[in-house]
């Protein structure tokens, strides 16, 4: 278990170093960083001085080492577009994205798992068949089209819910939350529904197929043969075995949610990191792009490692390393 943990952490560090290398190369070789630091009519001497001050005259691997060291301390340089520290920009935007992604992930689990269980237990009911059909459409629909349709129906035609922004937010330290005001909560509904929809259909289909698989196993048949109640068989014996693989897939998909939040944030003008990233892409603002890449990769790596650990905790077969009894 400890060996597994150490192996995973070393692996993660290598992935992060590789990502930092990509970010550094973007930073170093796209455009001249000096241009962003000096006025347009600076002399060659002034430029050289800046170059020296930035350490750009050092060997390339020294520069990379410095980049990693600074990035590890949260220093990602200045945005080329508005000359503010990238770390400040990201910190301002992070809470909005985090709240959106968390609500969407929560919704997709909270709705997807029960629907999956239901369709697995009553596969022939009308409701289960309709859900299965709807999920097919849900998987084929481009997410931004879903978002536009939601706005068209609930904001334009019905006028029930806001179509942009976060509503009123409350600052708690550096974190700004939309959870504490009515307008903040209302503003969350449509974006999180749009973001969770694809995920939800995926989880529902996954839970359904896993659960049907588990219900066919011998240990479920044996549990029935011992006269255990249906409730225990479905929700204690079958569900636990169903959810172990679902958790892994969900962890991997959580990264997808962060990526898809870029689209949601654009549709709903949600002031998160994704919207910031899109602006950076369209203006070629390399420091912001590179830092977003590093931050998102870090989140991916943390999620993946935690999922692996969680898996090991949940599945007793992985928990004990090689302890097997003899006859």
């Amino acid at each position: 278990m400890l060996g597994f943990l150490i192996r995973r952490i070393i692996q993660s560090i290598f992935v992060m170093l590789a990502v930092a290398l990509i970010a550094f190369m973007m930073f170093r070789f796209m455009g001249d960083p000096v241009n962003s630091m000096v006025s347009e009519n600076a002399t060659t001497e002034e430029r050289d001085e800046v170059r020296e001050r930035l350490g750009l005259d050092q060997p390339i691997w020294v520069q990379y080492g410095r980049y990693v060291a600074r990035a590890a301390q949260g220093d990602f340089g200045l945005s080329w577009r508005n000359a503010r520290p990238v770390s400040t920009l990201l910190a301002e935007r992070f809470p909005a994205t985090a709240e959106l992604v968390l609500v969407a992930a929560g919704l997709s689990l909270l709705i997807g798992i029960p629907l999956g269980i239901f369709t697995a237990l009553r596969p022939h009911s009308f409701l289960a068949q309709s859900l299965q059909f709807l999920s097919l459409i849900g998987i084929s629909l481009p997410t931004f089209v879903t978002g536009i349709l939601l706005i068209l129906v609930f904001s334009v035609w019905l006028g029930w819910l806001p179509s942009f922004g976060r509503g009123e937010v409350v600052d708690i330290g550096w974190w700004s939350t939309g959870f504490l005001t009515l307008s903040g909560l209302k503003a969350l509904i449509l974006p999180s529904v749009m973001l969770c929809l694809f995920q939800l259909t995926l989880i529902m289909r996954l839970v359904r197929s896993e659960m049907m698989e588990v219900l066919r196993t011998d240990y479920i048949k044996f549990a029935r043969a011992r006269g255990l109640t249906n409730r225990s068989i479905h929700f204690r014996h079958a569900l636990k075995n169903t959810l172990i693989p679902v958790i892994t897939i969900f962890g991997l998909q959580l990264g997808g949610l962060i990526a898809f939040a870029i689209i949601t944030e654009t549709v709903f003008q949600w002031p998160g990191m994704g919207a910031l990233f899109i602006q950076a892409v369209s203006f070629g603002d390399v420091p912001v792009m590179a830092s977003y890449l590093v931050l998102v990769s870090l989140i991916f790596v943390i999620i993946n490692t935690s999922v692996d650990l969680l898996y090991a905790v949940l599945d007793p077969r992985l928990r004990v390393d090689g302890a097997r009894a003899s006859h």
Partner: peptide, 16 residues
């Protein structure tokens, strides 16, 4: 009561 054929698959792996 009932005893099943395959002891490897008759017991739930995630419960003690």
């Amino acid at each position: 009561g009932a005893i099943f054929q395959d002891p490897l698959t008759s017991l739930n792996p995630v419960l003690t």
